[in-house]
C-alpha cells in the first residue's frame, strides 16, 4: 500500500509517496506556476516515474497547502499546519517547537509529546523573514543561489538587516551597497535578518525542529538560527517535504476523518 502527499504551497509544490512502513519512496518538486491542477499532474508524473508505481498502486492521495482545495484528485484535504506537524513529528516523536520557513510564510507550531498541536502562529501579512525575501534580495545582488554558501563562508562581519518590512530591508541593502560593504557580509545580513524575524515570533527553547524550503536550499541557516536563538536546532530528512510527508501520513491513518467527519 502506498500513500501520496501533495503540499501545494505559494511558491513551490511538493509531492511524496510513502509506503505502509512510513518510508519515503519518492519525492518531487515543482514551482507553483499558475495552475495547481497542472502542477499537481506534473508532480504525480514525476513521482510515478521515480517510484515505478502507478496511480492504481496509491491507496490515498492527501493534499495540503494553499492550493489544497484547487485540485480534484485528492481523497482527503488537510490544513498545512497539521501536515507539517505530523511530518516533523514522524522524525522527532517528542515535544518540540517546529519552525517552518517557506516561500511566503513562516509557521511556528508547538507540538506536544503525543504529536498534538498545542499552539501555532503564522507570520503577519508580510514576506519579511521568508524565502521570498531571500530570493528578492539575492536577485537584487545578482547572486545565484548556488554561490550563496561559498560566499557566506567568506563573510567576516555579522550584519543584521533590521527592517520589519521587505521594502525597507531592500533600501537597507542599497545603503550597504553604497557603503561598499562586501557582498558576503550583505548576504550574511540577509540570513541573520530571517533568523531575527523567527526569534521575534516565539521564544525558542527545548527541542527546535526546522523545516521548509529555506533550510532545504540553505542548510547553513541551521547554524545561523542556532546562534541567534541560542538553542540547538534539528533538521529532519527531506525538510522541504515535511508537509507532503505529513499529508501522506494522514492518508495512512485516515480513520481520524471518519471520526470527526470534517473536511478541511
Amino acid at each position: 500500500m502506498y500513500y501520496l502527499g501533495l503540499d501545494l504551497g505559494s511558491t513551490w509544490c511538493k509531492g511524496v509517496i510513502i509506503d505502509n512502513k512510513k518510508e519515503v519512496i519518492a519525492t518531487s518538486l515543482e514551482k507553483t506556476g499558475y495552475s495547481f491542477i497542472e502542477t499537481s499532474e506534473k508532480l504525480l508524473d514525476e513521482l510515478f516515474k521515480k517510484s515505478s508505481l502507478k496511480r492504481k498502486d496509491i491507496t490515498k492521495i492527501v493534499a495540503t497547502g494553499y492550493g489544497r482545495k484547487s485540485i480534484e484528485i485528492a481523497d482527503i484535504i488537510k490544513t498545512e499546519i497539521m501536515c507539517h506537524a505530523k511530518g516533523a513529528y514522524h522524525y522527532f516523536p517528542e515535544k518540540f517547537i517546529l519552525i517552518d520557513i517557506g516561500g511566503q510564510d513562516n509557521k511556528i507550531v508547538h507540538i506536544g509529546e503525543n504529536g498534538e498541536i498545542l499552539n501555532f502562529k503564522l507570520n503577519r501579512k508580510c514576506a519579511a523573514g521568508t524565502g521570498a525575501f531571500i530570493e528578492e534580495s539575492l536577485s537584487r545582488l545578482q547572486v545565484p543561489y548556488e554561490k550563496v554558501k561559498e560566499l557566506i563562508e567568506k563573510s567576516d562581519k555579522d550584519i543584521t538587516i533590521a527592517s520589519f518590512c521587505t521594502v525597507f530591508a531592500q533600501t537597507e541593502i542599497i545603503k550597504l551597497i553604497k557603503e561598499n560593504e562586501k557582498v558576503e557580509n550583505i548576504i550574511k545580513g540577509i540570513f541573520n535578518s530571517v533568523a531575527t524575524r523567527v526569534i521575534e515570533m516565539e521564544t525558542l527553547h527545548g527541542t527546535v525542529v526546522l523545516t521548509g524550503g529555506v533550510i532545504a536550499f540553505y542548510p547553513f541557516f541551521k547554524e545561523i538560527l542556532e546562534k541567534k536563538a541560542n538553542c540547538k536546532v534539528k533538521v529532519p530528512p527531506y525538510p522541504q517535504f515535511s508537509g507532503a510527508i505529513g499529508a501522506a501520513l494522514f492518508g495512512l491513518n485516515s480513520e481520524f476523518h471518519k471520526k470527526h467527519q470534517l473536511v478541511l
Partner: peptide
C-alpha cells in the same frame, strides 16, 4: 487591506482541527 482571507481561513481551520484532535 490589513486582513488576509487565506491566512485567516487556514489558521481558523487548523485551530478547529487542533481543538477537535485534543
Amino acid at each position: 487591506r490589513l486582513f488576509s482571507d487565506e491566512q485567516a481561513r487556514t489558521s481558523i481551520e487548523t485551530f478547529i482541527e487542533q481543538i477537535l484532535e485534543n
